[in-house]
């Protein structure tokens, strides 16, 4: 039996999760919400994490009814992410690891999302669409690596949505993407926007610039129409490239993870595509799609079980940490 605790703070969410053999015992989270029109700055975000982390740890331990001596391993997000928030959380994780005398593991954030989503949904060997504020990747597992099949060539799809929400001065609570999703439901007119797919890769910066111009100049479309059109366009790009990867790999499963993954419209579109191919789509809700501590705890436990530990000198953070850099020692399928 392995009990692991995971610390996550690579962006504006601070999360601590406690997992025992794939069962989530606690997974509390605090989100740093900025005023409408404003993004989160690394320094302020780091501050938020530092201010909240002690109480959040107490909350997690209480909810899980776990005493620190029962914990086998401390896991933290090594990257990718924003420098100072990452470091704030890593310093805290290192401290408790020393205090409690427990081994420590640095976890790749994207791997955390993938393993958590596989655990929750039971997807076996899916093509993974990983979509968040900082990442847009299409991933296939092969030979002990999560290999990046396709990705954005510029900004992440979540970043595109967030920046548009900011321009419209939408609330950042609970997330800008969520508010775009709600407005989009009442959109009626489809405004054609640049649709940029290159093989398995996509581009979102052109769409953003184009619709930003639109939003400030043209009056004949409502905000709802614009949100609707933006979602329809960028999600179609995601579904198309995912389908291309599926066809090439002969895959019959898709797993959507990352913060944008809890968008119901995206899930619907993916399901529609899968239906046509006789394939299955798997997704999780906001508890596990959005950054959280349990995903770091669970991926860390998988590593712990096969004897992967992070030596003390290597418990640093790295803002750039590719999904395919990690050797997936805990999977034995080809």
């Amino acid at each position: 039996m392995v009990v692991s605790i995971g610390f996550e703070g690579s962006a504006n969410k601070l999360g601590i999760g406690i997992v025992r053999d794939g069962i989530v015992l606690a997974n509390p989270r605090r989100t740093f919400i900025t005023p409408p029109g404003e993004g989160f700055k690394p320094v302020d975000t780091a501050n938020h994490h530092q201010l909240n982390i002690v109480l959040l740890l107490k909350e997690a331990l209480d909810e899980a009814k776990i005493d620190p001596h029962e914990i086998d391993v401390v896991c933290y997000t090594k990257g990718p992410g924003l420098g100072s928030p990452l470091v704030s959380v890593a310093v805290f994780a290192r401290t408790v690891s020393q205090l409690w005398g427990k081994p420590i593991i640095g976890v790749n954030h994207c791997i955390g999302h993938i393993e958590m989503a596989r655990l929750i949904t039971g997807a076996q060997n899916p093509i993974v669409l990983y979509v968040s504020g900082g990442n847009t990747q299409i991933i296939a597992y092969s030979q002990k690596r999560y290999r990046i099949f396709g990705e954005t060539v510029d900004i992440a799809v979540g970043n595109c949505l967030d920046r548009f929400a900011r321009l419209l001065k939408l609330s950042n609570h609970p997330s800008p993407g969520h508010n775009i999703e709600q407005l989009a439901k009442n959109g009626k007119i489809y405004v054609p926007l640049p649709y940029v797919v290159k093989g398995m890769d996509m581009s979102f910066s052109g769409v953003l610039t184009y619709i930003e111009d639109f939003a400030t100049t043209l009056q004949e479309y409502t905000v709802e129409d614009l949100c609707f059109s933006l979602q329809e366009t960028v999600f179609a790009m995601l579904v198309e490239t995912t389908e291309r990867a599926m066809a090439h790999c002969g895959a019959q499963e898709v797993l959507i993870c990352g913060g944008v993954g809890c968008n119901i419209r995206l899930q619907e579109m993916m399901a529609e595509m899968c239906k046509e191919r006789g394939a299955k789509v798997f997704a999780t809700d906001e508890r596990f799609c959005i950054d959280n501590g349990a995903m770091i705890a669970h991926a860390g436990a998988e590593m712990f079980n096969v004897g992967v530990l992070t030596s003390w000198e290597d418990t640093f953070c790295t803002q750039r940490y590719r999904t395919d850099e990690v050797e997936v020692k805990w999977r034995n399928d080809v």
Binding site: R147, I148, G199, M200, H248
Partner: peptide, 17 residues
């Protein structure tokens, strides 16, 4: 170059070694 890059990644993710 992008054309070749697409091929490279497609090969690495489907054909081991």
């Amino acid at each position: 170059g992008v054309d070749l890059y697409v091929l490279e990644r497609a090969m690495l993710s489907t054909h081991p070694n």
